[in-house]
Design a protein around this nucleic acid. Structure first.
Lengths: 343, 343
DNA sequence: GTTAGCAGTCACGTCGATTGAGTGCTAACA
DNA sequence: TGTTAGCACTCAATCGACGTGACTGCTAAC
């Protein structure tokens, strides 16, 4: 266990390195912060901290750099989320109100704000499955040969597609069919509509084969859509401003990873457990970003996981700031969802 | 006017520079291409070409680099679009079929393919206004206090939003209202629904103030949406592979420009005239990309401008290749739109 | 008109010296 | 026993000198 002085020195080193990205040396530390200690003493302490695995030296004559273990300790025990300034809050509120028209815009804004506030890459994963349930379906007339199949969900959304109507089929037949299917599926969670259930519908309402097939297909498509996760990203450009990404190869490498939506989904999805998760450097099992840290938070609404937001950046990251921004966004989203649930 | 030998030399210089990104010298040119001329002769010709403004020297002892004027001449007179190889065609077809579910996916795919094939940044601007017309509107029940207002367009799409229903209003009243409005707006181009027209609707169907207001708002929103242009981009990462973008500052600069959707829209929108447009270097009036070239093509369907696609890259660009890819995509999109017009 | 030869220019890479920030160690001090 | 001053040492980064190679322009001969 570290004594208070070691903790203090370690904290200062971590914070200094986070803000400057330069290895920190004993003399500079003594000069910059009023520790009441000589560089020599600090050197001794640093030497101890290195032995304990908290510090590393890029080379003999450079200062020291925090190890992943140091960041871990820093995050767990040495720092608190900084309270956001009023200014920051105002900024966030402003950005959110700038453009908010549908749920996608909200997530996109979240990603944008997250990256702007933290100067890092942000990722927002939105589960389409918000527990939305099938309410009823209805055919709207289009022309002689086509109708529009509308599926209404309990949150007031309508999904629709054009279906071909067999010649000679009367509107009443369509209405009857829609009614039957509606009764069977009403109240079912869209993400959970199983093939078994559809089979049941089938045996119950088999009428016109072709029409029925396209009807089933529409329901399946909708169901799939509700299981899907959308990915929103922001701040990939910010990356270039970070001193650790002055190297083109590294930039290309990480941008390549972020380009694959599937990879991002997997990456962020790891944190299925609740609340906040901080992954530092090699703690991350994804190769290619093991020199990065990631902070992620899942957010829920009425018990459902609505999505996950994450910030990815160099291990030298303003953990406190990122966490507090996430926290604020979390609450903000919560109020938005709760009030605007009918969009 | 240049004689044939000068033209040939200029063409070789441009092409060599396009493929190597290195200033080309007389001796190398003689060695690489079988011109039947000595380096000295080529030097003389190059000297003439420089005087005429077609070539530039980065510094005394470097080779020559084509000037914007040279690219312009090259594009106008020295090159033909290369025919795509069967391989390329197969690749494009494959990418298109990979994922095509709605119109946005198609545009996104177009951007992706364009950037992959040309190794440059691609932008696709999609006009939402495809001449879609209002067909009719209808209320679908949701719960006691709300209904879903559906607006059906002649291409079979349904737009919807939840509206609050005044207490005590009967479904028949809603239907009546929907019917009246439908009759007034039927057949109108959604992008052109004017305030005057809405005013007319107002005087005709004013019934319940609150309901009417939200109804109008929905129509306006939809109309706005149809006037809008969406921007799809691809290949921003490719940028980093280009030798001219090894400089971080330049990368940051151009990525900054591309980040602003508004700017991209303006940038690409310049080419309102039909067909193909090649803008080389300083011909572009946008500051910040005056060392880049842009090739853009507008595409139409039944006379309507459906959108614009553009490739942005260093002036050292494979003009012929880009143009031929665009051409192929153009035809491809045309067939997709014509066949899948009902999605 | 074409070419060989030659002098001149200039970016680029290498090498060595200098600089400066940093460490570890030791001896003295409180 | 903990703290500090001093000193020798290390090593990345910077700078300048220098050689190299890829060019060009010019001139004279073919």
């Amino acid at each position: 266990m570290l004594n208070d002085r070691k903790k203090k020195i370690l904290r200062l080193i971590v914070e200094d390195y986070i803000s400057t990205a330069e290895p920190v040396g004993s003399r500079n530390l003594a000069r910059k912060y009023d520790l009441g200690l000589s560089p020599a003493t600090i050197r001794n302490e640093m030497s101890d901290l290195e032995l304990l695995g908290y510090l590393e030296q890029p080379h003999t004559s450079a200062g020291r750099v925090p190890s992943p273990q140091a960041y871990r300790f820093y995050v767990d025990s040495l720092t608190e989320p900084d309270a956001l300034t009023d200014n920051d809050r105002a900024l966030i509120n402003g950005w959110f109100n700038e453009r908010r028209r549908n749920i996608d815009d909200i997530f996109q804004s979240t990603a944008k704000i997250l990256s702007r506030m933290t100067q890092n890459v942000s990722m927002v994963l939105a589960n389409e499955d918000l527990g939305t349930c099938f309410k009823y379906m209805k055919f709207l007339p289009l022309d002689e040969a086509h109708s529009i199949l509308c599926i209404v969900t309990d949150d007031g959304n309508v999904d629709n597609c054009v279906v071909e109507i067999p010649v000679g089929m009367r509107p009443e037949e369509l209405d009857y069919m829609a009614g039957r299917v509606s009764r069977l599926l009403a109240g079912k969670n869209l993400a959970n509509i199983s093939e078994d259930l559809l089979e049941e519908v089938h045996t119950d309402v088999a009428h016109d084969k072709l029409l029925f097939a396209s009807l089933m297909q529409s329901i399946r498509k909708l169901s799939r859509k509700h299981k899907e996760q959308k990915v929103f990203m922001g701040g990939t450009k910010q990356l270039l401003n970070q001193p650790e990404f002055q190297d083109m190869e590294r930039v290309k490498n990480i941008l390549g990873i972020l380009e694959e939506e599937r990879v991002v989904r997997d990456l962020v999805n790891v944190g299925e457990d609740d609340g906040l998760k901080v992954t530092i450097g090699t703690e991350n099992t994804f190769t290619g970003i093991q020199d990065c840290s990631m902070i992620q938070a899942t957010y829920r609404l009425n018990g459902h996981i609505v999505g996950t937001m994450a910030v990815l950046g160099p291990t030298r990251m303003e953990y406190g700031k990122v966490i507090s921004v996430m926290d604020y966004l979390h609450h903000y989203l919560k109020t938005i969802f709760e009030n605007d649930i009918d969009k």
